[in-house]
């Protein structure tokens, strides 16, 4: 489990960023269905809201609501290029710990399946804070509730899933991503997950065999996300569990 390497930025560069850059198009072809909680959150925003999608990946959430304006950002240039197609939104390459947005201006922010890739508790907390700091603060004077953030992370408690993790298991794990090449596919039986145009597009690399990439994840225990949100200066307004993930909707803590 690569335990000998010190965790932090370098570690993530190797065990998260470079993997996504490499698997971008295959990964993207398997990520097209928005999760219901995220879809609901985005569709309930008032028309004309402005916000950020931190770690937007292939931009699947940019397709949900064309009546708001979202600046999506991701570490992976290849994923950002895929995400660029969704109008009227915009996408940029940025690190979630160094976001190039003015603070306290956005009506909303989402960070879906992103913060679990940060490899130390301090960096995960900082990532939550970075999302919260984008939000308009609540203002009792104007009776405004302030901007809202939706954060989604992978859960440790998922014993029904294919991975089978559960309470008491190791929380810091390496998760394989297997990319089958065209050549191998023609020799073996096709597997359901690998169907689709993106796989066909890989005929341009006929030489390569099936390749496994390992990505680092921190699996969140029950209550851990809410605790991080609180310590990062946020207030959880709603939270829950959906299909192997913990999620929380948060605002900035009122300062008046």
């Amino acid at each position: 489990m690569a335990e000998s390497e010190p965790r932090g930025e370098e570690y993530e560069a190797q065990h998260v960023h470079s993997v996504y850059e490499e698997i971008a198009s295959h990964f993207s072809s398997t990520r097209y269905k928005p999760w219901p909680i995220v879809e609901r959150f985005l569709k309930e925003l008032p028309d004309g809201s402005v916000g950020a999608d931190v770690g937007c990946g292939n931009g699947k959430y940019l397709a949900v609501n064309p009546k708001v304006f979202i600046v999506g950002s991701d570490r992976s240039t290849n994923l950002v290029k895929i995400a660029q197609q969704y109008q009227p939104h915009a996408t940029i390459v940025a690190d979630n710990l160094g976001l190039p947005h003015p603070t306290h201006t956005f009506d909303f922010a989402i960070s879906i399946a992103v913060i679990h890739h940060l490899s130390t508790p301090e960096r995960r907390m900082e990532a939550v804070k970075a999302v919260l700091d984008l939000l308009r603060p609540p203002s009792s004077a104007q009776g405004q509730t302030g901007g809202k953030a939706l954060i989604y992370v992978w859960a440790l408690e998922q014993k029904e899933s294919r991975r089978g993790w559960d309470e008491g298991h190791e929380q810091d794990v390496m998760v394989p991503w297997v990319r089958h090449s065209k050549k191998e596919k023609s020799q073996k039986r096709r597997k359901g997950e690998d169907h689709g145009a993106e796989v066909a597009a890989q005929t341009s690399v006929p030489q390569s065999e099936s390749k496994t990439f390992l990505r680092y994840y921190h699996l969140y225990r029950r209550g851990e996300l809410e605790r991080d949100v609180g310590e990062a200066g946020g207030k959880v307004v709603e939270s829950g569990y959906e299909k192997d993930n913990w999620w929380a909707i948060a605002t900035l803590q009122g300062s008046d």
Binding site: V50, F69, V71, P88, A90, I92, A94, D95, G98, L99, P100, H101, P102, T103, T105, F106
Partner: peptide, 26 residues
């Protein structure tokens, strides 16, 4: 990148965000 985006961007360096000179980017 559409020009509208510039309205929501500033420097990625934290100390710069406090300065009015960091917005907009040129």
């Amino acid at each position: 990148m559409k020009l509208l985006t510039l309205n929501f961007l500033t420097c990625a360096l934290k100390p710069c965000k406090a300065s009015p000179l960091s917005f907009p980017l040129h």
